[in-house]
Simulated assay, not measured.
Amino acid sequence: MTTPDLTGVLVALAGVIGLLTGSFLNVVVHRVPRGESVVSPPSACPRCGHVVRARDNVPVLSWVLLGGRCRDCRGPISWRYPVVELLTGAVFALVAWRVGISAALPAYLYLAGIAVALALIDLDVRRLPDVIVLPSYPVALLLLGVASAADGQWAALLRALTGAAVLFLVYAVLWFARPGGMGLGDVKLAGVLGLYLGWWGWDALVVGGFAAFFIGGLVSLPLVLAGGAGRKSSIPFGPCMLVAAVGALFVAEPVADWYLDLVGLGAPV
C-alpha cells in the first residue's frame, strides 16, 4: 500500500519528469512527421537559427522568463511549447497517482508519453507515424512483462495479449468494412492500446475501447451540426482513442459497476 506521503513524492517526481519529457515531445511532434532526427541537430530558433542555450531550455520557466521570445532575435516563441510541457507533466502526475508505486508504473508512463505525442501529431498532420506506433509494441510488451514478473501477474500479461488481439481485430474489421472510415494507423495503434487496457483489466478494455467511439461522436456531432464537417471530413480519431485509453485507467471500474447495476447484474447489497 502506498502511503499518502510517498504518493505525494511520487506524483511530484512524475510531474517533473513529465515536464522534461514534454520538452522532448515538442521536438518529437515537430520533427517526426517531417522524417527528421529527434536528436540532431540541436534545437534552434526557426527565425534566426541560433541554437537554444541550455539555460533557455528549462521547461515552462525559460519561456516565461524570456517573455515567450527568442533571446537572440526576440522573435515570438509559440505558446504551444509550454502548454505541451505542462500537459505532459499533468498527465504523468495523474498516471503516477493512479498506478502508484508499482512495477507497472514505467509502462504506463510510457503510454502517457506516446499518448501526448501521437495525439498532437495526429491533430497536426492526420497521421500516426509508424516510427512511434510500431516500436511501442515491443516496448509495451517488455515493460508489462517486467511488471508481470515482478508482481507475479502472469494472468495480466495473458489478458494484455488477448486485449491487443481483440482490439486490433475489431479495428481491422471496421477499417476493412468501411474504407476511409478510419486510418490504418488507428488499427496499428489499437493493438498497442489493447495491451495496456487488457493488462489493467477487462473492464478497462471494454470501457476504453467503447469510449473512443463515444468521444469521437461527441467531437464530430457539433461539427456536423454546425456545418463545419461532413461525412467526408477528415477528423483524426487517434486522439479519441488515446484519451479513452488513458481515461479508462481512472473511470473503467466505476463505469463498469454503474452499467452492471443498471442492467441488474451488479453485486447484491
Rank of each mutant, 00 (worst) to 15 (best):
Gly209Glu: 02
Ala190Ile: 03
Gly230Met: 10
Leu189Ala: 04
Ile215Tyr: 07
Leu205Arg: 01
Gly230Phe: 08
Leu221Ala: 13
Gly230Leu: 10
Phe214Cys: 13
Val207Cys: 02
Gly216His: 08
Val192Thr: 02
Gly201Leu: 05
Val187Lys: 01
Gly227Tyr: 12
Gly194Asp: 04
Asp186Asn: 06
Pro222Ser: 12
Val207Gln: 00
Pro222Gln: 13
Gly194His: 03
Gly185Val: 05
Leu193Pro: 00
Ser234Phe: 14
Leu221Asp: 08
Asp186Pro: 04
Gly194Val: 04
Asp186Ala: 05
Leu184Ser: 13
Asp186Gly: 04
Leu195Arg: 01
Ala211Met: 14
Gly227Gln: 10
Ser220Gln: 12
Leu195Glu: 01
Lys232Thr: 14
Val224Pro: 06
Ser233Gly: 09
Ala226Trp: 14
Val224Glu: 07
Tyr196Arg: 00
Ala229Gly: 08
Ala190His: 03
Ala211Asn: 09
Lys232Ala: 15
Leu197Met: 12
Gly230Thr: 10
Leu195Lys: 00
Phe214Ala: 15
Leu225Asn: 09
Ala226Thr: 15
Gly209Gln: 01
Phe210Asp: 11
Phe214His: 12
Phe214Met: 14
Val207Ser: 00
Ser220Ile: 11
Ala212Asn: 06
Leu205Thr: 03
Phe213Ile: 08
Leu223Trp: 09
Lys188Glu: 02
Leu221Ile: 15
Val206Leu: 12
Val192Pro: 00
Val187Ile: 07
Gly185Arg: 01
Gly201Asp: 05
Ile215Leu: 15
Ser220Tyr: 11
Leu197Cys: 06
Lys188Trp: 06
Pro222Asp: 10
Arg231Met: 12
Gly208Val: 05
Ala226Glu: 11
Gly217Ala: 08
Ser220Glu: 10
Val206Lys: 06
Gly230Asp: 14
Gly208Cys: 08
Val224His: 07
Leu218Tyr: 12
Val192Ser: 02
Gly201Asn: 07
Val206Arg: 06
Gly191Trp: 00
Phe213Arg: 06
Gly208Trp: 00
Leu193Thr: 01
Lys188His: 07
Phe213Gly: 05
Leu221Glu: 09
Gly228Glu: 15
Gly194Ile: 02
Ala229Ile: 09
Gly217Cys: 10
Gly198Gln: 01
Phe213Met: 09
Ile215Phe: 10
Ala229Asp: 10
Trp200Ala: 09
Gly201His: 06
Leu218Gly: 15
Val192Tyr: 00
Trp199Gly: 01
Val219Glu: 08
Trp199Cys: 04
Leu193Cys: 05
Gly209Met: 04
Ser233Arg: 09
Gly216Ser: 10
Asp186His: 03
Gly217Arg: 14
Ala226Leu: 15
Gly209Asp: 03
Leu221Gln: 13
Phe210Ile: 15
Gly191Ser: 05
Asp203Tyr: 05
Gly198Cys: 06
Pro222Phe: 13
Gly185Ile: 01
Trp199Asp: 02
Gly230Ser: 13
Ser234Met: 15
Gly194Cys: 08
Gly198Ala: 06
Leu189Pro: 00
Gly227Cys: 11
Val219Ala: 11
Trp199Asn: 04
Arg231Ser: 15
Val206Asp: 05
Ala211Thr: 13
Phe210Gly: 11
Val192Asp: 00
Ala204Leu: 07
Val219Pro: 07
Leu197Ser: 03
Ala212Pro: 09
Ser220Met: 12
Leu221Met: 14
Lys232His: 12
Phe213Ala: 09
Gly228His: 14
Ala229Val: 09
Gly191Gln: 02
Gly228Val: 14
Ser234Ala: 15
Gly208Leu: 04
Val187Gly: 02
Leu225Val: 13
Pro222Asn: 12
